[in-house]
Simulated assay, not measured.
Amino acid sequence: MFDKISEIFKDGLWNKNPGLVQLLGLCPLLAVTSTAANALGLGIATIAVLTVSNLLISAVRRLLKAEVRIIIYVIIIASVVTCVQLCMQAYTAELYEALGLYISLIVTNCIIIARAEIFASRNSMFYSALDGFANGLGFTAVLLFIGGVREIIGKGTLFSGMDQLIGESGRNLQINLFSADDGLLIAILPPGAFITLGLLVAAKNYLDNRLYIKNSSKKRDSESTIVTE
């Protein structure tokens, strides 16, 4: 049990991260990450939708005919997104306005459909909920990193607009590093999102390759020791 839980979180956060490895959900990932606050808001919404939709799809998976399963998945996901959307509209109205259409587009997010088809339709409710949470957390981490880097380079701030997410206390979280006039404009424009994501993917691949080489070297040394003995 613990091995499977560990595998689910490793895959969602690193090995099969939907934003870095599978490159799914690029539309919202690149569109709303001009600030860390926007990225975090969309990330939390995505975690909620992934977790609840995976849970519900797993609960009804044995009742669905293969011919209509995708339609039912979309209906379930759309219902969950609507609930999340209404909650954001009620409690974080300013953030909801800032994110706009991209909250509704979670319905068509490839990550949600992919996890429903690949995992939730084949596993128990408990593991499906964990899978949704882990993948949502991994996607949110990518969103937050890209949003933070773009905001720092482009505006000279970090966590500006957090009051839209958590209320007035969020204003105290804003960090001012330098004047916005000294920022690099391209960072908060669409090309900045592509460049940041590309560098992040390259960094992950580099670390994975280094780890693979290190593990391979240890394995060869171990085999050599055994043969010598």
Rank of each mutant, 00 (worst) to 15 (best):
S124G: 12
D131S: 14
V142L: 04
I44H: 05
Y73S: 05
T46D: 08
S124Y: 06
S58I: 02
I103M: 11
R115A: 01
G148H: 10
A90V: 01
T140R: 05
E117I: 07
L56K: 03
F119Q: 10
Y102A: 06
A120I: 09
L55M: 13
V60Q: 07
A141K: 08
I75N: 02
L56H: 01
L130P: 07
S121I: 01
Q85T: 05
L55I: 05
V60F: 06
I113E: 10
I146E: 04
I112C: 15
N54G: 06
G156Q: 09
L130F: 15
A45V: 02
I71L: 15
K65Y: 13
K155V: 06
I112N: 12
L95I: 03
M162G: 06
T140A: 13
I112K: 10
L56Y: 08
V68R: 12
G156S: 09
R122M: 04
A120E: 09
G100E: 04
F119E: 11
V84E: 04
I76S: 02
S121Y: 09
V52T: 08
I77M: 04
E117P: 03
I118Q: 13
D163Y: 08
I118R: 13
S128N: 05
T92L: 04
T46P: 02
C87F: 14
T82M: 14
E67F: 00
V142Q: 06
E67I: 00
G148D: 10
G100I: 04
L143S: 07
M125E: 09
F145V: 14
I72F: 11
G138N: 04
L165Y: 02
E151Q: 10
L63M: 09
Y73R: 09
G43W: 07
A120P: 10
A59M: 12
F145C: 11
V49S: 05
